[in-house]
C-alpha cells in the first residue's frame, strides 16, 4: 500500500515528571496513518494510548519528535482533528442536545443546519428521547454515546476515539461499531481508535497497532487485509484476532517477569474477552 501519509508521528517521545522521577509514557514512537485509514490501537493499561491520541489531536504538544497532520506540524488543537475522550466529559449544565451542539459551536454553520445535524446525531446514537436530559440523568453508556456524537457531529478530518465503546452493552456496542464504520466509509474520515477489545480492533481496523508498556512503544502493527463489510465470526478474522492476542499476551508477558502477581490478572482479562461479541 502506498497512500499519502495523512498523520505522521515521527520519533515521538513523551516524558512525565512524576514525584521527582521521570516517567517515559511514549518512547520513540513512529506511526504513519494514511488518509481515510482506520487505525485501531490496543495495549495494556498505562502503555500510553491516551497519551498518543492527545499528542495526535494537538492537546499536548510537549513532546520530542514531530507530529504532522496533512503536511503541517501539529502545534495545538484544531477543529479538523476531533477527539472523543475516554471519559464522556459532558458539560453537566447543558442538556444532551446542547452538549452535542458544542461540537458545532465554532463551525460557522447556520443555525438551522446545526440544529439538523444535532438531531441527526442524536438519532444516530439513539438518544433522541433524551435530547433534553441533563448528563446526570444518563447512564454511563448513554453519556458515552453523547460524547461520541459530540466528536462526530462536526465531521473532522481526523477523529481520535479513546475507548469510545468501553461502557456499552454488547448489542449497542456492535450497532455503534457498524454505524461508525458506515460514517467512516461514507465520509472518508481518518479514524484512530483506542480499545481494549481485540475483537473490536480487528473488526474495525485496517491496521491494528499493538503497544507495549513501560516504556510505551509500538510493538507490532498487524494488517487486517480483509474486505468490508466484515463478518464478525469469519475464520479469517479470528485468525487475525488470535495473532493480535498472542502479540498482546507477549507484551504483558514481558512485565510478567517484572511484577508476577499483578500482571497475571491483566493477561487473564485480555484472554477472557468473548470470542465474538455477536455470535
Amino acid at each position: 500500500m502506498t497512500k499519502v501519509p495523512h498523520i505522521q508521528i515521527e520519533n515521538v517521545t513523551r516524558k512525565f515528571q512524576v514525584s521527582g522521577g521521570s516517567l517515559v509514557a511514549l518512547d520513540n514512537v513512529t506511526l504513519d496513518i494514511a488518509e481515510g485509514e482506520f487505525v485501531t490501537i490496543v495495549g495494556a493499561s498505562g502503555c500510553g494510548k491516551s497519551t498518543l491520541l492527545r499528542l495526535g489531536a494537538g492537546l499536548d504538544t510537549n513532546h520530542e519528535g514531530s507530529v504532522i497532520h496533512a503536511g503541517v506540524p501539529v502545534d495545538g488543537p484544531s477543529l479538523d482533528r476531533g477527539m472523543v475522550f475516554q471519559e464522556p466529559r459532558l458539560f453537566p449544565w447543558l442538556t444532551v442536545e446542547r452538549n452535542i451542539a458544542l461540537g458545532l459551536e465554532n463551525s460557522g454553520l447556520p443555525k438551522s443546519e446545526k440544529k439538523q445535524l444535532v438531531a441527526q446525531h442524536l438519532e444516530l446514537v439513539g438518544l433522541t428521547a433524551f435530547a433534553k436530559a441533563y448528563p446526570h440523568q444518563l447512564s454511563g453508556g448513554m453519556a458515552q454515546r453523547a460524547g461520541i456524537a459530540r466528536g462526530l457531529v462536526n465531521r473532522p478530518d481526523v477523529l481520535f476515539l479513546d475507548e469510545p465503546f468501553g461502557a456499552l452493552d454488547a448489542i449497542t456496542k456492535t450497532r455503534l461499531q457498524d454505524e461508525l464504520q458506515e460514517i467512516w466509509a461514507k465520509e472518508r474520515i481518518t479514524m484512530v481508535l483506542v480499545t481494549h477489545d481485540v475483537d473490536e480492533a480487528v473488526y474495525l481496523g485496517d491496521r491494528v497497532v499493538i503497544m507495549s508498556p513501560r516504556p510505551g512503544r509500538i510493538r507490532e502493527i498487524v494488517e487486517v487485509n480483509l474486505p468490508r463489510p466484515r463478518v464478525r465470526t469469519a475464520a479469517t478474522l479470528l485468525q487475525v484476532r488470535n495473532r493480535v492476542l498472542n502479540s498482546l499476551n507477549e507484551t504483558t508477558g514481558a512485565i510478567d517477569r517484572e511484577r508476577p502477581a499483578a500482571v497475571f490478572e491483566e493477561s487473564a482479562t485480555v484472554s477472557k474477552q468473548p470470542i465474538t461479541a455477536f455470535a
Binding site: 517521545t13 513523551r14 516524558k15 512525565f16 515528571q17 521521570s22 499536548d60 510537549n62 513532546h63 520530542e64
Partner: peptide, 9 residues
C-alpha cells in the same frame, strides 16, 4: 534528551 515536564490538566 532533555526532560520535559508538565502537569496534565
Amino acid at each position: 534528551m532533555a526532560v520535559i515536564s508538565e502537569f496534565f490538566g
